[in-house]
Structures are given as structure tokens and as C-alpha cells.
């Protein structure tokens, strides 16, 4: 077991994990944060996307033991009590949520994209989100949601 200190959504957390445990499992099973999803646990679907020291990563590919001292932001950190983050609001408004299993990962990925590139072209959105699978929507509403969020956040 490894003693690990993380800063998760602004809060200092400490936990003991086995060598091979992924950050996704630690978040979901040890830290009570199941918002990041486990659709493949192989780095292929993006449903587990989180920010680690502000960088977008698939948390299923990160070993918790190696993440000691890092700052992690998950979908649970977005928005405030009673108020959705504009990216979350845009997903609701655009109808980009069906089963919603892809949604937390997509929202974190879209949030990361818009921070880097506030007014992406459709193609830039597609490129940035190409690592996030969604089986329900066919992606049309997801593209619309990201553009809606960009407008709400930056093009008032």
C-alpha cells in the first residue's frame, strides 16, 4: 500500500492505495466521488476525464500512487450550489444528455477545451472531443452544447 496525498476539488485528501490502483478507482471507491465514469478503464472512452494539475487526463490511465501531491479537479467541482457551470447548463439546454454516462467526461473535456480555446470552430471541437465516446446522441447535440457554452461564457 502507498500513502498518497492529493488535492481533490480544492480539498486535501489522504488515502492508502495498492500499487496498481488507478486514480479513477481511488476517486470512485475510496474518495466518494463516483462522478467520473468507468466505461472502459482502458483509456479509450474519456468517460473518466479529470484535470490533473489543470491538464486533461483519463483518470483510468493514471496510477494513484504516482499522483502523490497533484491537484485533481473532477466534474463534481464544476458549478456551485444550485448553479450549474455554463458548460453543464449548455449540455442540459442543448439536449446533449441522454443516458448521461459519457456526460461527466465530456463536460470536463469541454471545460478544458474552452479554457484553452474560448471560441473553437466546429472542427476544433470535434478534434478536442474525439477521445470521448458517446453511444446515445450521435454527437450533434454535444457539438451544439459546446458552442452554446462558448457563447455563454465568452461571446455575450
Amino acid at each position: 500500500m502507498n500513502d498518497v496525498r492529493l488535492r481533490v476539488n480544492g480539498v486535501a485528501r489522504q488515502t492508502a492505495v495498492p500499487d496498481h490502483e488507478s486514480l479513477l478507482t481511488t476517486l470512485r471507491e475510496r474518495l466518494g466521488l463516483p462522478g467520473s465514469k468507468n466505461a472502459c478503464e482502458q483509456g479509450e472512452c474519456g468517460s473518466c476525464s479529470v484535470l490533473m494539475d489543470s491538464e486533461l487526463v483519463c483518470s483510468c490511465l493514471v496510477l494513484t500512487a504516482g499522483a502523490d501531491g497533484r491537484a485533481i479537479e473532477t466534474v463534481e467541482s464544476l458549478g456551485a450550489d444550485g448553479v450549474l457551470h455554463p458548460v453543464q447548463q449548455a449540455f442540459v439546454d442543448a439536449g446533449a444528455v441522454q443516458c448521461g454516462f459519457c456526460t461527466p467526461g465530456l463536460i470536463v473535456a469541454a471545460y478544458a477545451l474552452l479554457r484553452e480555446n474560448p471560441e473553437p470552430s466546429d472542427l476544433e471541437v470535434r478534434e478536442a472531443l474525439s477521445g470521448n465516446l458517446c453511444r446515445c446522441t450521435g454527437y450533434g447535440t454535444i457539438l451544439a452544447a459546446v458552442q452554446r457554452a462558448s457563447r455563454a461564457m465568452y461571446r455575450r
Partner: peptide
């Protein structure tokens, strides 16, 4: 269920 889903709070 849209709001709990975008917040990561919807219990799958």
C-alpha cells in the same frame, strides 16, 4: 435527470 447527470451526481 439532466441536472444530476451533468453534475456527476446521478447514481448509475
Amino acid at each position: 435527470d439532466g441536472v444530476p447527470k451533468v453534475r456527476g451526481e446521478f447514481p448509475y
